[in-house]
């Protein structure tokens, strides 16, 4: 199952959970996880932005989505206090947080600043 999920160069954000996030962090050298929840308005605005970036930057940036309601361990491990919150992982390490919804070009700049 999980082998199928973590394909090499996905063109869409992968559904990440508490139990497989570590595997994804290890596999993808530049990995951005969009932490969201159903009840969060700004998160809904960010969803199409993240989808679009995942497609445009396929093979370059890998995106994941994590529902904080169903995956509280990750939210607490990384000290998330606000969503939307994108956690940026580089070579298996957390290198930053991007907080709040923003337009696509600004989000891309923020992500790239962690390269």
């Amino acid at each position: 199952m999980t082998e199928e999920k973590f394909v090499d160069n996905p063109d869409h954000p992968l559904e990440i959970t508490d139990s497989d996030i570590d595997q994804a962090i290890t596999k993808y050298p530049f990995f951005v996880v969009d932490c969201w929840a159903q009840w969060c308005g700004p998160c809904r605005m960010l969803t199409p932005v993240v989808d679009s970036l995942a497609k445009k930057h396929q093979g370059n940036i890998t995106f994941g989505k994590l529902d904080v309601d169903n995956n509280p361990a990750t939210a607490s491990k990384y000290g998330i206090r606000s969503i939307p919150n994108l956690i940026v992982f580089k070579d298996g390490q957390k290198v930053g947080d991007i907080i709040g919804a923003m337009p696509e070009d600004r989000l891309l700049d923020e992500i790239n600043s962690y390269r």
């Binding site: 929840a37 009840w39 969060c40 308005g41 700004p42 998160c43 904080v68 309601d69 939210a75 000290g79 998330i80 206090r81 606000s82 969503i83 919150n85 947080d97 907080i99 709040g100």
Partner: peptide, 16 residues
């Protein structure tokens, strides 16, 4: 500290 404890949206951040 915005997003790190400072918030302007209770529905977004309350559950944390």
């Amino acid at each position: 500290l915005t997003g790190k404890g400072v918030s302007y949206c209770a529905t977004c951040d309350g559950p944390f």
